[in-house]
């Protein structure tokens, strides 16, 4: 018989891996590796959801784990790969702030996230005590990634990673949102990625590049 404490240990371990992946994404310079890391993040997320489903005996979380796997490990990375191939760009990730400084800011964000999550963690039971802080940190780190990247594709991956962090918060703190809501969120994410894809083509067609720096015309005068 596997005890509940053992499951908590596993969930905590997965949470730690999630945080490590977030940092790896923050420091990653190659876009293809970034997509790979994003897929790994999805896999960890899916695994943790499945474990929560097993330990709490909640059937709807199995579906949720399956959807996460299909969407975030298979569909989205595949879509992104395809986009990159069709756009024929395999550039390095360009950052606004150099990567060591970004990592330091990231560290500060993690401390901040744990403080922010303190009042919620106190109310939580089991593994959720540790994981809420980590989920918040993942969200903030993805946010940091979004605002420090110059090109459109890494920004979008940051956006999707942020959604992963939120999803992790939902499963670890509350055993998952109701099924309708989760389906709705998954649909929104999928449609959103398609629209991002359409955008990439429109942007490149118009600016001959996917560099966001070209898009600084609309400023207050």
């Amino acid at each position: 018989m596997i005890s509940a404490a053992w499951f908590d240990q596993i969930i905590s371990l997965l949470a730690a891996i999630l945080l490590l992946i977030s940092f790896a994404m923050l420091s990653q310079r190659r876009i293809l590796s970034l997509i790979e890391l994003f897929a790994w993040q999805g896999a960890v997320l899916s695994a943790s959801t499945a474990i929560v489903a097993y330990s709490a005996n909640l059937h709807h979380l199995y579906y949720s784990a399956a959807i996460t796997f299909a969407l975030k490990v298979v569909a989205l990375p595949w879509l992104l790969h395809r986009l990159i191939r069709r756009l024929n760009v395999r550039w390095d990730v360009e950052t606004m702030i150099n990567i060591p400084s970004t990592m330091l800011i990231g560290l500060a964000l993690v401390v901040f996230a744990f403080n922010l999550a303190q009042p919620i963690s106190q109310l939580a039971t089991g593994a959720a005590r540790h994981t809420i802080g980590i989920a918040t940190a993942t969200v903030l780190l993805s946010f940091l990634m979004m605002i420090t990247r110059r090109k459109a594709v890494p920004q979008v991956i940051g956006f999707l990673a942020m959604e992963n962090g939120l999803f992790f918060a939902a499963t670890s703190a509350t055993h998952g949102m109701p099924m309708v809501v989760e389906l709705g969120i998954a649909l929104d994410v999928l449609v959103g990625t398609f629209i991002f894809g359409i955008f990439f083509f429109q942007i490149r067609e118009t600016f001959d590049s996917l560099d966001i720096r070209h898009m600084e015309k609309l400023k207050e005068r």
Partner: peptide, 9 residues
Amino acid sequence: PESLEAAWK
């Protein structure tokens, strides 16, 4: 270009 920038933002 402007409308694309606006939409992206």
